[in-house]
Design a binder for these strands. Structure first.
Lengths: 204, 204
DNA sequence: GAGAACATGTAAGCGGTTACATGATTAT
DNA sequence: ATAATCATGTAACCGCTTACATGTTCTC
């Protein structure tokens, strides 16, 4: 089976909540699911056009003063049906590609200091991610009290992010500690690491 | 800047460890970094050809009896230099696309039972991932005692997987519990969920 | 006899990113 | 002045997956 286009469903999903323009969709994706999903205009606009052609959404032009026209898209019943079909379909497993790990896997070729840099950068990213999710959690709590069903589901996605980023922050600390230990040991031995020299290690 | 081809570096990385054929590379990637990286033959073979053309690897044909010929590739010094440049370059952040979360985010349109299915499937995947990493950890311990520097780095990647999958397994349990609670509450109220009906909730 | 493992590739086509193109208004 | 926000799009290009193509040997 040919793999299906998930971007379509992200766009359709946004339209299932509110009618909006391509520009809005981008903003909403960034705000709502930006931590685990992203779409560019170069994806969104062609998809919207296509959805209209297929009768899954209709488009109305909204004139504005002092601002460009907006093309507001509304999901149709067919659109909702198609979206629901995707929503109920079982998920497929996604292949991951984690660049830090790829570099770490081959890092014995280089100085540990290089790896420390990589992991620290990843750590910064995770800290940002964690903070984002925390902020979203606080925001979400207000909505939860209003008794929104939707807020409950969104909270689950946020909790995912919290579990995820917290765990990986712990990994970063552990790993940086270990890398520093390796760096020290190397310093003691007076060995400088290059691609072609393998340091001889004394088994402690 | 145009984004660079990471698959090239995965292949080059494998060659930096041992000379091998495209077939071997596939196997080694699956075995060694399969949990966080994957490449298909349709990537590997053209890359190898290209690497040879660029002088980053050389190819020797090895004749075998009863088996097809093997084209064994060996990394050149230029190849190592190019690989090292990538290895020392800072990592870029990767955009994630997690399908479960996308579905969960819009799941208020559907019955909680659907979400339970999705999360359970994800849970199964994570259990497999966790078991894989655990097995790799045990294997790795043997190598660690031999005092391999490389084994230390590989262990860090494995630890990443353990932190990662353990955290997400915890999330799965929490989420399934919550979803079941929502399912029960819905059953009590006698409401059936469709796209167009919003259930009214009594604030407890 | 069927299927897995060994071994190397190509072609088609979608998916996704980057860069380009345009143009008005508002805030610093 | 300069940058940011609002707003919509296109073109080119690469990455990556899927499917196709071929042929032998060994195992069940």
């Amino acid at each position: 089976m040919p793999r299906e286009n998930k971007s379509r469903y992200a766009v359709l999903g946004m339209l299932s909540v509110h009618s909006m323009s391509g520009y809005d969709i981008k903003k909403q994706i960034e705000k709502g699911i930006g931590n685990f999903w992203s779409e560019g205009y170069a994806q969104i606009y062609p998809i919207l056009k296509q959805l209209e052609e297929e009768g899954l959404a209709i488009c109305e032009v909204e004139r504005q003063e002092g601002k460009p026209d907006r093309k507001v898209y509304t999901i149709t019943e067919t659109g909702r049906a198609v979206f629901m079909r995707w929503l109920t379909e079982p998920i497929g497993q996604y292949p991951m590609r984690i660049e830090v790990l790829l570099k770490l896997f081959f890092a014995h070729h280089a100085d540990p200091a290089i790896s420390i840099q990589h992991v620290k950068r990843f750590q910064q990213e995770m800290e940002k991610t964690f903070a984002d999710y925390k902020a979203q959690e606080r925001e979400g709590e207000a909505l939860m009290k209003e008794g929104g069903e939707r807020a409950r589901y969104q909270r689950m996605a946020i909790r995912f992010g919290l579990y995820y980023s917290e765990a990986l922050l712990a990994w970063c600390e552990e790993t940086i500690t270990e890398l520093k230990r390796m760096e020290d040991r190397q310093g003691e031995a007076g060995c400088k690491r290059t691609l072609y020299s393998e340091i001889s290690k004394s088994t402690e």
